[in-house]
Structures are given as C-alpha cells and as structure tokens.
Design a protein around this nucleic acid. Structure first.
Length: 596
RNA sequence: CGGGCUGUAGCGCAGCUUGGCUAGCGCGCGUGCUUUGGGUGCACGAGGCCGCGGGUUCAAAUCCCGCCAGCCCGACCA
C-alpha cells in the first residue's frame, strides 16, 4: 500500500463544515446520550396480511461467494470529482429536522437536548458522542449488565458474520484449519513466557473458585491463546514432517478494560486468532506477512477501509513477540485504529512450551511460531471510517441489507405495493442481493427513509402506485455520486438485479476510494516539532524518530500521539529525530498518531 | 486508579437551591380514527422500588454519608 505523503500545509480540518454552527463544549454534551428504542419489538409485532407469506420478508441471504464477488471491485469506477463532492457531502449536518434545534442563543447551546432526539450528534460537535449515538441507535449493540461488556445485536452481529465469512475464506484458502481451544487456562501456563505474563498481567480475569470451593491453582480466562495452544503444539509436533502446523480459532477473549468503548475496547470481544509453527525463521516470517496480507486485503476490499501496513516499534510490540506487524486504519477524526495484527514469535514460545521437532538430520530443533488476530474492533473501524452525520454508512460487502425496499401506498394501495415489493425482493435475493422489505404499517415512508439511512443501508428502493404503473422503482443511494444528494432515479424493475449489482459494486468502490483519499490527505511528512504537533492534531505524522523509548514517551505525554507503525512501503530516509534531534532509527519514517 | 460531570417511565429531560399537595413534560409504546411520495394529525390509555444502602426528620426525588453505574479527560489495550 503506497503511502502518499502530503506536506503539512495541506492538512485540513477533519470535517470542514462552515454550516455547522458554533462548537458546543463537550461537557455540555452529557445530556446527549441516546438510548435504544424499541423498534426491534415493533419489527416483530407489525404483522400484516401480506406478511403471512414468510418467504418474502427479508428474503434469505446471499451466498458467501456473492460477498466475495461484491467485495472485490475496482476502485476506479467513481470519477475523482464525484468522490470529492461526496467527501464534502458526508460532512453535511444530518437530517432535515436537525437544523432548527442547533441554532438558538447562548442558553440553548447549553441545553443540547433541545436538538431533535431523532438525529445523531454531528461528528464535528463531538466525535465520541456521535459514535455512541450511532452504535446504539442503529441497533448494533446494547450495553451488557457488567461493566465493559457488550451485547452485539442481530444487526451488528450480521456485520460480524459477513466479515468473518470473508476472512475465514482467506484463512482456509491458504491451508489453515479451524480448531477450538479452551477458555480457561491454568495460571502456570501464563507464567512460562516471562514477557507474555508481564504484558498481560494487568488485564487478566482470574477464576479462583469453582464448584463452591477455592481452586488449588487459579485459572486464567484467556486474554489470548498462545499458551494453551503452545502446550498442545508441543504435544502434536515431533517431526519436521509435522510442519508447518497451521491453526486458527474463532473465539471470545477477555481483557480487563479501564475505559470501555463499544467495539473498540470492551472487556470481552470476539476475534480470530491464528497460530502456526514452522521449522525455520524464514518460513515463520513469511507466514507472519501472509497473515498481515489477509487483514490488509479484507480491510481494503471488503470493509473498504484505508490502511497502512507496517511494523510496530519495540515499545508497541506484542508481549512475547520478536516482531509485531500491524494494519493501521485511518478514522474520520484523524485517529488511528489497529485493525489487525500479526506476530513473529521467533522461538520464544517454542522454548517456553517445548515445541520442538526432529530435523531431517536427526537433531532436535525449536519451532518458530506466529500468531495473528482480527477482532470485532474492525466493526468500530467501519463505523468511524464511513459514517456521517446521518449515521452509519455500510459498504455493500458487509451490509446486512444491501437494498431496502419501502412500499408506499395508502388504503387499498397498501396490499398491491407491498406484494410488489416482496416479489421484487425475492427476485433480487435470487440474484444474490441481500434485500429487505420494510412493510411496517404504522411507520410513514419518511420515517423509514430516515431510519434506514441512519442504519447505513447502501441503496433504497421506493415502490409506490406510480412505479407500479410503469414497472419501475425509485432508487436512491445512501451516498450519491451527484449533488444534491436527494436525487432519486427511476430504474426499470426487470433490469433491477443487474443494475443494482453494478450500483452496489460502484458504491463499494466509491467508499474505498473516498477512504483512501481521506487517508492520503491526512498524512503529513513533518520535519519539525511544530509541524509534528500540528499534524497529529488532525491526522497522522510521518516523521524521523530516534527509536528511543524515553523520546517516544515524551512525545506521548505532550501530544498523546504514539508511534503507530513503521510503514512497510516507507522509502529509505534518515536524519535527525523530529523530537530530540538524535540520529533516526528504522531507516525510514515512522507514523505517529493519536490512536484508539 | 486520579480529575470533571450525571443517575427521576423504554429514551431525552424538569422538579432538588428553600424537604410537605396525586412526581410532571416531550418522544416512544397501546387502542381507535385520520394519515402515508422525506421523521402524519387527533382522542383516549398504559407505564415510575425517583440508581442502591444507610442516616437526619412528624415528613426525603429533594438534606447528609457510603456504595454502584454511565459519560468526558489522563495512565493500559485487539
């Protein structure tokens, strides 16, 4: 992935929006937490006569192959100018009704709750509040009863399943096999690799009692599975013929979190962890890079995220690893999010767990191991990369519903429009397009439009008497290529499957392109400390660094920015450290950014 | 764990300063009518251990102490 550096002066505010009105102090936004409505119940209760035909309602699901087909699209479908226009578009304030609420005099500003409860906090006003509004209102998650826990609701879980299916395919296609290892790990296992224990000690959950009695040896709830899997690998590997051993598991892990944040930092999260053992360091290194490629590819092709792959600096390395690699994503507020990570362990774990093999020449040798993971955090990355003031924006490849059909009609027209919608959905479904019919009788069309836009559905079709008469549907995109956004387009129903497939592919490409442009526009090559500080305030800084831990710490204290990675594609460069002036390390520039 | 803020109906809030009427309002929810092409309107209705536990008082949503939870800012992290 090429890093296109721009000069510092090209940096722009994260979201340029002169129309957004006065900024409101974050403290005042307290009042703004948005709760979760009951529309889930509504969905299940709103039975209509037409609904007795169960085939049609949210008909089926696309085949995994369709997901891949949609996911891999060319990024050049949308002309640059349109993409630029979109970027500006995304920054516009949300729904039509949010305007009156935002103006208002001094006192009004303190009472933000005066704003329409139906719209989300604008990103420019408070990005964190915006994020919270979106995850709850789009019904991706709900809060669990225990601090730091998260309930992933059906709409959010479907996104995870789509990501999962994509990555699982990539993992299996390269010869890895899925397995499952236990949640509970003897405490002694954790202690065998010195750095590993030390690194994880502050975040461990420990089980001290079972069956009403205190355990002789406490159990650890896995924060990651290197230790159990290492133990099993030692048992399973004896000859070079057993290598490489390529394992993966989909699992939950628990790590105590001081400051939970939905998807980004919760005490329990879902992930995939790959664990492999190899004869040589070269093989293991190649594996490490292969896995990193999974994440980079899936982030770019499927999630439409813009990333920079690189190596972690020693201070950011995984506990127990020799080298750690990462795929860093750029969020719309200019912060970095680690989307996937891949570790070369050398022989550290092999030595700790006795993972050895007999070589061809008969000598006993230590294996070289790797591990790599991608978690539900990726969903947070999706939200913060594509979302706007109307709410979520989902790339078609991971959208639970790629198309939502809103039947429109009153009185006697309800039945025919709803059945037409259901029929249309069935056709699209057969064409591999995930389609949903919103036939809630009590909600007005306008409400549904806003609702599905908030939930990020890429394409909406309106089907009313007029369309029925001439065999068309009115299509509108969550983000359009044209201005003004509200433009709707009539499409012939009989050509809908092909047309929509193309639309979805174009939409996917447009998002990927937009994200890449945003990333490139927010990475600045900096050569002085003031430039550095300015750059990390709004985006990423590409800087020469001495590599000293103390210097890193100072940078962090002063700017809250940390080294995110040493880009793999970084051009050779050296000189004075941007902070302390000593000779630079790493042979190339390092990305510094504020991170999640 | 430190600093700041907040817990009253599903959600958003008022009431608390100065203790006392039946604890209110908006949205949402239910029923009926009316409506439906960008967040329909009207009527009626349901819904509240006022975060939890103690204390002061004739009397506590209101005052005092403790605890718990959530949000924002710092140290940790996929």
């Amino acid at each position: 992935m090429p890093v296109k550096p721009v000069r510092c002066e090209h940096l722009v505010p994260v979201v340029a929006d002169p129309a957004a009105g006065p900024a409101i102090p974050a403290a005042a936004c307290q009042a703004h937490r948005v709760g979760v409505g009951r529309s889930e119940e509504r969905l299940s209760r709103g039975r209509t006569p037409v609904d007795q035909q169960p085939t049609a309602r949210t008909v089926g699901e696309a085949e995994p192959s369709d997901v891949h087909r949609l996911g891999i699209v060319c990024a050049d479908d949308a002309p640059e100018a349109q993409v630029q226009a979109e970027a500006a578009q995304g920054a516009q304030p949300g729904g039509q009704n949010s305007e009156p609420a935002r103006k208002g005099s001094g006192l009004g500003n303190l009472k933000i709750m005066a704003r329409d409860q139906r719209s989300v906090t604008p990103q420019t006003e408070d990005f964190a509040a915006w994020y919270n509004d979106v995850v709850f209102r789009a019904e991706l998650v709900d809060r669990g009863p225990v601090r730091g826990s998260m309930v992933i609701r059906p709409y959010g879980y479907r996104i995870w399943e789509l990501l999962q299916a994509d990555l699982d395919g990539r993992i299996k296609a390269t010869g890895h096999q899925n397995a499952y290892f236990p949640l509970l790990i003897p405490q002694s296992y954790m202690q065998r690799e010195a750095e590993h224990v030390e690194g994880f000690a502050p975040e461990l959950f420990t089980v001290t009692h079972a069956g009403g009695k205190e355990l002789e040896e406490p159990l650890i709830v896995r924060p990651t599975s290197e230790t159990v899997i290492g133990e099993m690998m030692a048992k399973w590997i004896s000859s070079h013929r057993d290598l490489p051993l390529l394992l993966n598991q989909w699992a939950n892990v628990l790590r105590w979190e001081m400051r939970p944040r939905m998807f980004l930092r919760t005490s329990e999260f879902l992930w995939q962890e790959g664990h492999t053992a190899h004869a040589t360091a070269a093989d293991a290194t190649a594996e490490t890079m292969l896995a990193l490629g999974f994440y980079q590819d899936m982030a770019g092709q499927t999630a439409a995220l813009a990333t920079v792959p690189g190596e972690k600096t020693p201070g950011e390395r995984f506990a127990g690893a020799e080298r750690t690699f990462t795929v860093e994503g750029m969020m719309r507020d200019g912060r970095a999010l680690q989307l996937g990570t891949s570790h070369f362990m050398g022989t550290n774990f092999a030595a700790a767990f006795g993972i050895t093999y007999t070589s061809e020449s008969g000598t006993a040798e230590l294996c070289h191991t790797t591990s790599w993971g991608m978690s539900t955090r990726m969903i947070g990355g999706l939200i913060m990369t594509h979302g706007d003031d109307k709410g979520l924006v989902l790339p078609p490849a991971v959208a639970p519903y790629q198309v939502v059909i809103v039947p429109i009609g009153r009185g006697e027209q309800v039945e025919p429009t709803v059945s037409a919608a259901i029929e249309c959905a069935a056709t699209l479904q057969r064409a591999g397009i995930r389609t949903h019919v919103d036939d809630r009788p009590q909600a007005s069309p306008g409400f549904k439009f806003n609702d599905w836009e908030m939930r990020g559905v890429p394409i909406r079709l309106e089907l009313g008497p007029r369309e029925l008469a001439d065999g068309t549907a009115l299509m509108s995109r969550r983000l359009s290529y044209r201005q003004p956004e509200a433009v709707k387009e009539a499409i012939p129903l009989d050509a809908a499957p092909d047309l929509l497939r193309a639309e979805l592919a174009a939409f996917q490409a447009m998002l990927a392109r937009r994200a890449a442009d945003f990333r490139d526009g927010h990475i600045a090559v900096v050569s002085s400390w003031p430039q550095f500080a300015a750059a990390v305030a709004v985006g990423w800084a590409l800087a020469l660094h001495c590599g000293q831990q103390a210097c890193e710490d100072e940078i962090k204290t002063e700017t809250t920015a940390t080294p995110r990675c040493i880009p793999l594609a970084g051009e050779p460069d050296q000189g004075a450290c941007v902070r302390c002036g000593k000779a630079s390390a790493y042979g190339t520039r390092v990305i510094f950014a504020r991170a999640y």
